[in-house]
Simulated assay, not measured.
Amino acid sequence: MTQAPPEHPSRHRRRPWSHRTSRTSDVLAAIALFIAEAAVFAWSVFASGMEGWAAQGDQDGIDAATLANIAWTEHFLYVLLALAGLAALCRAPWTAVSHLAAAGLVFTLLTGMHHGWDRTHPAPAPTPRAGYTPCYSGSGTCP
């Protein structure tokens, strides 16, 4: 008769997804991480504003600071989504929900930033083709 090898309970306890995170530590982690993320984002916005202010009206410097802030915000959004996935993997629902809420807020702000950039920097009008002649009323060149 064969015997099954004994299971090692300590091996399963080391994995964060093997048991649910306690509610108290989950809520405390959610609050602490949400406050830390808000502080990091506020510091980034402040630093970007200072870079724009330091440009002293130089439009290229202001544009570079704005584009750098947009790129940083995109990367911050990716980090928030990765942390939400990690929290879900660790079975910490409050932390995952708070990260998803923060990611939703950052996504909304990022969409507004892109929209503001597109409004202030429209795409140039297309150049006419080589054989183009404008059509003026009464010129006889209209098709």
Rank of each mutant, 00 (worst) to 15 (best):
M1T: 13
T2Q: 12
T2R: 15
A4W: 09
A4H: 11
P6V: 15
H8E: 15
S10E: 15
S10V: 09
R13W: 09
P16D: 01
W17H: 11
S18F: 04
H19E: 10
T21V: 06
T21A: 12
T24K: 07
L28F: 11
L28R: 13
A29V: 01
A29Y: 04
A32N: 08
L33Y: 03
L33H: 07
L33P: 00
F34E: 15
I35Y: 08
I35Q: 14
A36Y: 07
E37D: 15
A39L: 11
V40C: 01
V40L: 12
F41N: 08
A42E: 07
A42R: 08
S44C: 01
F46V: 09
A47P: 01
A47K: 09
M50W: 06
G52V: 04
A54Q: 12
Q56W: 10
D58I: 07
G61S: 04
A64T: 08
A65L: 06
A68C: 05
A68G: 10
N69L: 13
A71I: 05
T73V: 06
F76G: 09
L77D: 03
L77Y: 07
Y78G: 12
Y78W: 09
Y78F: 10
V79Y: 04
L81E: 06
A82Y: 04
A82S: 08
A84L: 03
G85Y: 02
L89Y: 15
C90T: 12
C90W: 06
P93T: 08
P93M: 06
W94M: 14
W94D: 12
T95L: 15
A96E: 12
A102D: 12
A103N: 05
A103D: 07
V106D: 05
T108M: 07
T108S: 13
L109C: 08
L109N: 10
T111G: 11
M113Y: 02
H114K: 10
H114Q: 10
W117P: 00
D118M: 09
P122C: 02
A123M: 08
A123K: 05
P124L: 02
T127I: 07
T127W: 00
P128S: 07
A130N: 03
A130Q: 08
G131M: 00
Y132H: 09
P134A: 14
C135Q: 03
C135T: 00
G138I: 02
S139Q: 11
G140K: 04
C142W: 07
C142P: 01
